[in-house]
Amino acid sequence: MKKRLAILALALVTVVTVNAQSKTIKTGESTVTWKGYKVTGSHEGTVDLKSGTLKFDDSKLTGGEFVIDMTTIGATDLEGDMKGKLDGHLKSDDFFGVSNYPTAKLVITKVKSTGKNSYKVTGNLTIKKTTKPVTFDMSVYGSKATATVKIDRSEYDVRYGSGSFFDNLGDKTIYDEFDLVVDLQF
């Protein structure tokens, strides 16, 4: 009887292990696009993934982890000196302080299926030295996943031009929330 239970337990572990998969993100084929807003308009750009994985049980998303290379943050809506100034400012301590914090990280902690190929995802996002939970929708089709994430930069001590920290900024105010549009290939 004990031998049968041991064989059954081993078979169950084997089935669970076979069904659990970790898929490596193809960072060179994936994109992360950001868009930040201010009173007088907006700016947009990209930032590169350094690494990433998505975890599945059968074909259902169950988790994942991503490292973002903050040293690559840059505007795509400007050229020349204006682009250089904005890129440098985003990398400075006024914003993301990439010399001290060269990466950001997202670790998925909870996944709930909301329909075929659709999920409500919660994860811990670390920017600079602060980790906060974020929740967003993700779709997975074949070897692709997409998500749009809204982030409140003030929660991560990114204060420059924020009306949450400074009064009387007028048309120099930069809104706290920015968007990330993520297209992953794995």
Rank of each mutant, 00 (worst) to 15 (best):
G80L: 03
V121S: 03
F165V: 15
G115Y: 01
L169D: 01
L61W: 13
A104I: 06
S42P: 08
I7P: 14
I174M: 07
V158L: 15
D176F: 04
G88H: 12
V15Q: 03
A75P: 07
N117K: 10
K3C: 03
Y175G: 10
V149Q: 03
V134Q: 02
K83E: 07
V32F: 00
D48P: 11
T14A: 09
G41D: 07
L180S: 02
S99N: 08
I73N: 01
F166C: 08
K26T: 05
T71F: 09
S22V: 04
V149P: 05
K85T: 06
D179R: 02
L61K: 05
D152T: 11
T53F: 13
I7T: 15
L54Q: 05
L169I: 06
N124C: 13
F178D: 04
T71D: 09
E79D: 10
T146K: 08
P102M: 14
K112Q: 15
D179S: 02
L90N: 13
T14S: 12
V140K: 15
F56W: 09
S164H: 08
V15T: 07
D58K: 15
F66Y: 10
G142C: 13
V39N: 12
V121L: 04
D171T: 14
D167W: 06
T27N: 00
T31V: 01
I68T: 00
V15S: 07
K60Q: 13
G123I: 09
M82T: 09
T14R: 04
K91C: 11
V140S: 05
K38A: 08
F66P: 14
T146C: 07
K150G: 02
A6Q: 04
K50P: 03
M82I: 04
H89Q: 12
S51M: 01
A145S: 08
L54F: 15
T14I: 14
S42C: 09
K83F: 08
K116C: 07
